[in-house]
Design a protein around this nucleic acid. Structure first.
Lengths: 212, 212
DNA sequence: TAGATTGTTAATCGATTAACAATC
DNA sequence: TAGATTGTTAATCGATTAACAATC
């Protein structure tokens, strides 16, 4: 059994993937931890430590092969596993997230969008016909998606999550302004956009005061 | 000059605000760090430490007064300063963020939305008429907003940020899948939704492997 | 007063950085 | 080979937790 990887490292992984992908797409073949550290504004030491949680992907005197490192990080992140997701909530946020996220190029597949409002059921989002939430049970039992993206109003979040959990969904991404409390045996990632707005506000006011 | 507050504490502040606001709205008058720790799933010690970076808001033997604590955290976050924001990019994400975020109830004011595409200029978003990006210079010079929300495509992010910086905008919230590198003297908060998706993916695959 | 709970100091734990031998 | 750069150990730094005297 490998050593447990710390949360701080996990949080940084997508950022590594993003930067390495940028390099890959601009045709860079190799990169040293030093050069990457300059670009990412972190220490080279941290990069080497982080990557070594998962294996020795570099070569002394050379650095890291960009293509190889990219595919290794993808593997670590599980992007090669073809995870599938359903989305519940075809309102503004659902539409935007479904439209903006390049699911396929990130290794995921969005396989169904559900809503309970008659006015959106049957409409199209990026080639997906919105289905009736009442039918989600059959759909999930048949297709067995790993994750659910919840873009429903605050009030509905908890009950939808409980329904889906009972159907065997293991992981949730929650966009509503409520915290989906960790349920037994389930993985939750809460996305709170207004938290970012508040952090920004804090930093502005901190700066104003500091400048006095 | 007060002691520098650590990034970890700042990151937790919006979450405190959210939980305290929940309590406030459900009519709770006082809360102890112990009870709050139970609800938030953190240690009571951490709560007391965190709050004490900013002052002694509690009372021995009693706990914290919810209404008072809420307004203190709001003050710390700068939510009482009436910061104003412009948004650039009236596509899906811009529309969604403008529609979903209760700016006013969070102490902010969105004062203008801009785009450069003739097909959206003049359309309405939550009572805002989308203005021509070509006119943003005059607008910013007149209204002096503190922050800008960038919901533009990846390619446009950098140049828009530089324009706005030259106009005096101090803080940016960037939604595009590119990192707005910290510019001299400017505050940046990057929001990367697909990072959350990847973290979720990591956790699912970690769990699968762990269960073997 | 007695009980409760804070504010704060000290102890522990974990994460980051520095350093360097191994090696390509 | 000589130079570069990794992987990894040790040192440092910072954040979290525990403990408790102060006090409402």
């Amino acid at each position: 059994m490998e050593k447990k990887v710390s949360g701080s490292v996990v949080n940084r992984l997508p950022r590594y993937y993003r930067h390495i992908t940028d390099l890959y797409e601009s045709g860079v073949e190799r990169i040293s931890s030093k050069e990457l550290s300059r670009r990412m504004n972190v220490t080279a030491s941290q990069i080497r430590q982080d990557l070594n949680c998962f294996g020795g992907f570099g070569q002394q005197g050379y650095g890291y092969n960009v293509e190889m490192l990219r595919s290794e990080i993808a593997k670590i992140l599980g992007l090669d596993r073809g995870y599938t997701a359903v989305m519940v909530g075809a309102g503004h946020m659902g539409r935007t997230f479904a439209t903006n996220t390049k699911f396929e190029s990130r290794g995921f597949k969005l396989i169904g969008i559900f809503d309970s409002s008659p006015s959106v059921i049957g409409t199209d989002i990026q080639g997906h016909t919105v289905m009736d939430y009442a039918e989600i049970g059959d759909f999930v039992r048949e297709h067995k998606p790993e994750m659910a993206i919840l873009t429903v109003p605050k009030e509905a979040t908890k009950s939808v999550a409980e329904d889906l959990r009972a159907l065997g969904i293991k992981a949730f991404m929650n966009f509503s302004y409520t915290e989906l409390r960790e349920m037994e045996g389930v993985i939750v990632e809460n996305v709170h956009l207004s938290d970012s707005l508040m952090r920004l506000s804090y930093k502005i006011s901190e700066k104003e005061d500091g400048g006095r």
